[in-house]
Design a protein around this nucleic acid. Structure first.
Length: 262
DNA sequence: AAGTCACCCAACCGCCCCTTT
DNA sequence: TAAAGGGGCGGTTGGGTGACT
């Protein structure tokens, strides 16, 4: 078992984060930006390991997170991407602005899997469940053949079992182009953020503008309430504050962010 | 009202990879 | 070149909560 050095140094808190801890972490990141996560707990006055801080920020405190239930478009997109990418949640998340890999993973495991199964689709293979029976037959048949390789006939009497019908392949890229609202609409929207880069996980916030915007919103939120539920409602009411006017991106580069504000 | 169950989801764990020393 | 440290990722856990009996 590997225990990370950051967790050995002292007794560290585990479990759910308190509003006070959230506030400390947010304030720290607003002030110093995202740098070395292992240093964050000490500097922020938190009894947490750096990984825990990173996770809390990425999955919950980040101002650009989209909260609430998944839309039908998002749902369809996740299914399409999962068919191609499998359980690569972080890669899937890069195509869903404002959604985290953890969120998508949870959504998949709790809802989408069941939905697909109810629709007669194997969530692991994205093939009809009947195919699984065939696959299993095929698997058993091949195994049997393997086990009996010494007496395997040269002629396969059941070639159909090894034959997989072709399936229409979803064009993800077409889907990607239609799944999201154009930027022009987002500019006036009240529930969406503006993204120049489809990859939210790349998380490049750009310089003073983004930092100042973030500061404005964070301060607004923190001054009014330490209740975390307020953060999200407040952030989502102010999408335009996160837009970089020059190119429409949320783009705060972590090193610049940190250096500019220190 | 109390107990049980099922579900959701935030957070942790363990592993891997990359970078630095 | 090997070791150590840090970050990222997918799998898993367990606490909270609502539905049901």
């Amino acid at each position: 078992m590997v225990i990370h050095s950051c967790c050995l140094k002292q007794k560290l808190r585990k479990g759910l984060w308190s509003p006070d801890e959230d506030e400390k972490l947010i304030n720290h990141i607003i002030r110093f930006g995202i740098g070395c996560w292992s240093l964050v707990p000490k500097r922020a006055g938190l009894q947490r390991c750096g990984k825990s801080c990173r996770l809390r920020w990425i999955n919950y405190l980040r101002p650009d997170l989209k909260r609430g239930s998944f839309s039908q478009d998002e749902e369809d997109l996740i299914i399409s991407l999962h068919e191609v990418l499998g359980n690569r949640w972080s890669q899937i998340a890069t195509h869903l602005p404002g959604r985290t890999d953890n969120e998508i993973k949870n959504f998949w495991n709790s809802c989408l899997k069941k939905k697909l199964q109810q629709n007669g689709i194997n969530p692991a293979t994205h093939k009809p469940l009947n195919d699984v029976v065939n696959d299993q037959k095929n698997h058993n048949f091949n195994n049997a053949n393997h086990m009996n390789s010494a007496i395997k006939p040269l002629f396969d009497p059941f070639p159909a079992l090894a034959f997989q019908l072709p399936r229409p392949i979803l064009n993800i890229y077409d889907h990607l182009q239609t799944a999201f609202i154009p930027d022009s609409e987002l500019l006036t929207g009240t529930e969406n953020y503006v993204y120049g880069d489809s990859s939210i996980n790349s998380f490049n916030w750009n310089s003073n503008i983004g930092a100042e915007m973030t500061r404005l919103v964070f301060n607004d939120a923190l001054n009014l309430s330490s209740d975390s539920s307020y953060y999200y409602s407040n952030f989502q009411m102010k999408p335009s504050l996160f837009q970089n006017p020059s190119d429409g991106c949320i783009d705060i580069h972590q090193s610049e962010f940190g250096r500019d504000l220190i």
